[in-house]
Simulated assay, not measured.
Amino acid sequence: MTHNLTLNQVNQDVQQCIQNCLDCHSICLNTAVTYCLKMGGAHAEQDHIRLMLDCAEICQTSANFMLRGSNLHAHTCGVCAELCQRCAESCERMGDDAQMKACAEMCRRCAETCRNMSMAMA
């Protein structure tokens, strides 16, 4: 299978990945700080909070790398995809919780576009 993408398609893919990273950064940071810490219990466990903050941070970094046109963005996107996947799994372990499900869903969307970006540019 060959990848004959036009510049416009590449730009659209990059723009979508940037937007997903920014959205994921926002929901992870907001959920960790304003929701999970207030909920307490499993929501506020150190490993879960750390993972959510790590996810938020790598999403911001990946977005910044793409916005700058860094030729290393495929590397940050690869790490971002892995962290987003782990964060989604951690959020889903919180059970039937609408906020955690929304966070997990955004993490999965971000993981998918970042994974595609890291493979496309590798």
Rank of each mutant, 00 (worst) to 15 (best):
C87G: 00
L37A: 05
A120F: 04
L37F: 02
R50I: 10
D47Y: 07
C87Q: 00
T61R: 06
E82V: 09
L5I: 04
C21P: 09
N30R: 12
E57Q: 14
Y35G: 04
N64C: 06
C80I: 05
S62M: 04
H43F: 14
C91R: 00
M52P: 04
G41D: 13
N71C: 03
G95K: 08
A81H: 05
V14Y: 02
C114R: 07
A98L: 08
I27V: 14
G40S: 12
C77W: 01
L5T: 09
M1C: 06
T2F: 09
S26V: 07
Q12K: 13
A42V: 15
V10A: 11
E45H: 06
H73P: 00
G69K: 06
A98M: 13
R50N: 11
C80Y: 01
L51R: 11
Q46D: 08
T31I: 00
A32I: 05
T31C: 15
N11H: 11
M106T: 05
D96V: 10
N20C: 08
D13S: 12
E89S: 15
A102K: 05
E105C: 04
Q9F: 08
N30V: 03
V33E: 12
Q9G: 05
C80N: 03
T61D: 10
L72A: 14
A74Y: 15
M100A: 13
Q99I: 13
H73F: 11
M52C: 10
Q16M: 11
A122P: 03
M100I: 00
C55K: 00
K38V: 12
L72W: 07
T34E: 10
A111N: 06
A102C: 03
M39P: 00
I18T: 03
N20M: 06
D96F: 05
N20E: 07
S62V: 01
Q15Y: 00
Q19N: 14
D54N: 15
Q85K: 15
T61A: 09
L37T: 10
M1A: 11
D96N: 12
M106P: 01
G40R: 07
C107Y: 03
T76E: 09
G95C: 04
C77Y: 01
K38P: 02
G41S: 15
L72E: 11
H25V: 01
A104N: 06
M66E: 06
H73D: 13
L7N: 13
Q12Y: 08
L37S: 04
R68V: 01
E92T: 09
M119D: 10
C77V: 04
C28Y: 04
T6M: 11
A81L: 05
M94Y: 07
C36I: 02
A98E: 12
T113W: 08
C114N: 08
S26F: 12
M121D: 09
G40W: 12
C17P: 02
